[in-house]
Design a protein around this nucleic acid. Structure first.
Lengths: 148, 148
DNA sequence: TTGTCTGCAAATATTTTGCACGACT
DNA sequence: AGTCGTGCAAAATATTTGCAGACAA
């Protein structure tokens, strides 16, 4: 935890940004909820518990900053809100998501799985892939078990 | 064109909805801009040219209806707006997108390409896939040619 | 002191909703 | 008459921006 914060601090410094208390609390909240997919409002409320004076705009600005640094990815599952998802350190590619249309749960897939597909796309469409977003919508294992 | 409108009309009727003039104009606009990825506001302005009395709310309600019928898919490329993309008639799966981070263009890939990946996901995660969203971000062939 | 960062409030942007009226059956 | 659909205006939601003051180098 401390080490990851330290590395993020260095990333900020390398672009002449500071790890202010507000930013640090925000990063801690994200690390503590690594498996969730928090909206800006979610993050704001969790940060408020530890640092009540913070403003919503600061949270937005921090999340934007972290997105720029590729510490988090801004994702969108089709409800009206942006969500912020910590990138795995050192992961070459952004992970995928399984969204359950029954219960709304969101699970993550860390495996890449797209290597072959990307090769085809790059050669067939002469498109140089820098990043990807892949989401499957369907029924999760929990809901499948429930309905049996 | 007329045949596609006719089929959409039948789809509406099968759920007790009517193809009102406003809805028909909206569908025509979507068909005429099949390759684009129009926002609700875009659609509104194009519909207004043919039917100036229409209200923005009606366009939103129509797009929602068409989404429910799976005539269009509501997509989101990470800018703040939802875009509406006509589904290929009879296509088993939603098509994929190539978003250029240089020029902002959005191209479509009609090939599925995900069959193998989906098999793995279904068995490994016991997740029943109903739909998917796949977007690649990178440099399109136009921008690559330009910079050479 | 200089520039960065923050909180607050106001502004903006997008989408949704309430409601009275109109069209069609 | 009854239902569905519409336009308008207002509301709701999500996000961004302006600005004056706080803070650290």
């Amino acid at each position: 935890m401390e080490q990851r914060i330290d590395r993020i601090k260095k990333q900020l410094h390398s672009k002449s940004y500071k790890l202010t208390p507000q930013r640090e609390v925000t990063v801690r909240v994200l690390l503590e909820h690594e498996d969730d997919h928090l909206s800006a409002e979610d993050v704001y409320m969790l940060v408020k518990e530890k640092y009540p004076e913070i403003g919503l705009a600061t949270v937005y600005r921090t999340l934007e900053l972290l997105t720029e640094l590729k510490v988090v990815d801004k994702i969108n599952f089709g409800d009206g809100v942006s969500r912020y998802d910590l990138r795995q350190e050192g992961a070459a590619h952004f992970h995928h998501h399984l969204v359950c249309i029954e219960c709304g749960s969101v699970d993550e897939i860390q495996e890449d799985l797209l290597e072959d597909v990307e090769k085809i796309v790059e050669s067939r469409f002469n498109f140089e892939i820098k990043d990807h977003r892949l989401t499957f919508h369907g029924i999760c294992y929990r809901c499948k078990d429930k309905s049996e």
